[in-house]
C-alpha cells in the first residue's frame, strides 16, 4: 500500500480514496459526486488538462488542482 495524490497516477492505475485535502465546501461537493473516502477510482486519462476517471461506473472529469488534493492508496 502506498499513498499518492491522484494527479500522479497514470492511465489505467487504480486506487482507493484515502483522504481529500482542501476546504470543507469542495470536499463535500466531491463526496456528493461520489468521490468519497473509500471509493475506488480508475484513471482513464492524465496528460494535460483535467483528469478523466471512472468512479463506481461513472465517468468524471476533474481539474488538476482538485486531483492534487485527493490522496489515493494504491
Amino acid at each position: 500500500m502506498e499513498d499518492k495524490a491522484m494527479v500522479f497516477l497514470k492511465r489505467n492505475e487504480f486506487g482507493k480514496i484515502k483522504e481529500i485535502n482542501g476546504c470543507e465546501d469542495v470536499k463535500k461537493r466531491l463526496f456528493e459526486l461520489g468521490l468519497r473516502r473509500g471509493a475506488g477510482v480508475r484513471i482513464l486519462k492524465n496528460d494535460i488538462g483535467p483528469l478523466i476517471l471512472n468512479v463506481s461506473g461513472c465517468k468524471m472529469a476533474l481539474g488538476r488542482g482538485l486531483a492534487r488534493n485527493i490522496i489515493l492508496s494504491i
Binding site: V26, R29, L30, L33, P50, I52, C58, K59, M60, A61, L62, G63, G65, L66
Partner: peptide, 9 residues
C-alpha cells in the same frame, strides 16, 4: 471554481 464534470455516456 474547480472543474468537476460528469462525462455522460
Amino acid at each position: 471554481s474547480h472543474f468537476i464534470m460528469e462525462l455522460p455516456p
